[in-house]
C-alpha cells in the first residue's frame, strides 16, 4: 500500500493533569475521506489542533508523507499542505468574499514599495474557484456576512483546495447547518476528494459521516476505538461504538428518519456513481 499522506502514531496530549489524548494512531491516504467520530470530550478537537499545528503533541509521532514533522504554528502545517477549516472561525463576516478567500495569501503585482494587491485577478480567481465547486457567486466584493452558513463553509473549502491543500481538515463543517445546507457541504467534500484531496471530516453526526466517509476512526475518552473501512462496519455498528450502546435505543429512532432522508439518499447515489 502507498505511503499514507498523513499518519499519527501513539499521540498523547496532556493539559495539566488532564489527559486529552492517550495514544491515538491513525492513517490517511490521498483521495479518501476519513471520518473522525466521537462524542463531546472524546478528544476530536485536540487531535485536529495537533494535526493543524495549533498544539504540539506531548508524545507520539506525526508523519507527513512518511516523514516525521514538528509543527510550531498553523502556518507550518499549511506549508505542508495541511489546511484546516473551522466550523465557526472559517470566515470574517465584514470582509468581502475575495478578501476572505485570499486572507494570508494575497496575490500581488509589482515589487518592493509598489507591491500591491492584484484585486482584479483575485476577484476572477474567486469566481472561477467557486464555479468549480458549483457555486455561482454574484459579487466577489459582497461581505461574507451576507452568505449562508453552507456557502461560507464552501468558500472556506474552495479556498483550502485552491491553495494546494493535500489534506483538508474539516472541523464539524455541518453541525451548525440545516439538512439542505449540510447536503451542499457534503457534496463539496465529495468534489474535493474527486480532485485527489485527502479529507479528515470531524463530526459527531453519524448520518453525515456514513454516506461520505471511506474510513471511520472512532475516538472515545482520548483513545481510538479503531479505524474501519466502510465494508468493515455498518452504520449501526458505528453508532454503537460511538455512543457505547447506551443511547442506541434513542438513536434508532433517528436512524429510521434517516432512511427517509431524501438528501442523504441522493448523496449516497452520487457517491455510488463516482465509485
Amino acid at each position: 500500500m502507498a505511503t499514507p499522506i498523513l499518519e499519527v502514531r501513539d499521540i498523547c496530549k496532556y493539559f495539566g493533569n488532564v489527559i486529552a489524548l492517550n495514544g491515538v494512531s491513525m492513517k490517511l491516504h490521498a483521495g479518501e475521506v476519513m471520518c473522525l467520530l466521537g462524542d463531546n470530550g472524546a478528544g476530536k478537537s485536540t487531535l485536529i489542533k495537533i494535526l493543524s499545528g495549533v498544539h504540539q503533541p506531548d508524545r507520539g509521532e506525526y508523519l507527513v508523507q512518511g516523514k516525521p514533522v514538528v509543527f510550531n504554528s498553523p502556518r507550518d502545517a499549511l506549508d505542508h499542505g495541511i489546511a484546516t477549516v473551522y466550523q465557526d472561525l472559517a470566515m470574517i463576516p465584514l470582509m468581502s468574499i475575495a478578501r476572505n478567500f485570499f486572507l494570508g495569501s494575497e496575490p500581488t503585482v509589482g515589487r518592493g514599495l509598489f507591491k500591491r494587491l492584484d484585486i482584479a485577478s483575485a476577484k476572477q480567481i474567486v469566481r472561477d474557484e467557486m464555479a468549480k465547486m458549483g457555486i455561482d457567486i454574484r459579487d466577489p466584493e459582497q461581505p461574507v456576512g451576507t452568505l449562508s452558513g453552507g456557502e461560507r463553509q464552501s468558500v472556506a473549502i474552495a479556498r483550502a483546495v485552491y491553495f494546494g491543500a493535500k489534506v483538508l481538515i474539516l472541523d464539524e463543517p455541518t453541525s451548525a447547518l440545516g439538512v439542505k445546507q449540510a447536503g451542499t457541504v457534503l457534496r463539496y467534500i465529495a468534489r474535493a476528494r474527486a480532485q485527489g484531496v485527502a479529507v479528515i471530516f470531524i463530526t459527531h453526526n453519524p448520518h453525515h459521516a456514513y454516506p461520505i466517509g471511506d474510513r471511520f476512526t472512532i475516538l472515545k475518552r482520548g483513545q481510538t476505538l479503531g479505524t474501519y473501512t466502510k465494508r468493515e462496519i455498518s452504520r449501526e455498528e458505528m453508532i454503537h461504538l460511538m455512543s457505547g450502546g447506551d443511547e442506541l435505543n434513542n438513536l434508532e429512532h433517528e436512524l429510521r428518519e434517516f432512511a427517509n432522508d431524501a438528501i442523504a439518499q441522493q448523496l449516497a447515489d452520487a457517491i455510488h456513481e463516482e465509485a
Binding site: S52, P74, Y86, L89, A90, I92, L94, M95, R99, L103
Partner: peptide
Amino acid sequence: FGIGGDATSARNVG
C-alpha cells in the same frame, strides 16, 4: 482588516 475582524481565524490562515 482580518485581525480586527477575527484575530483567531486570521492567525489560522497564516
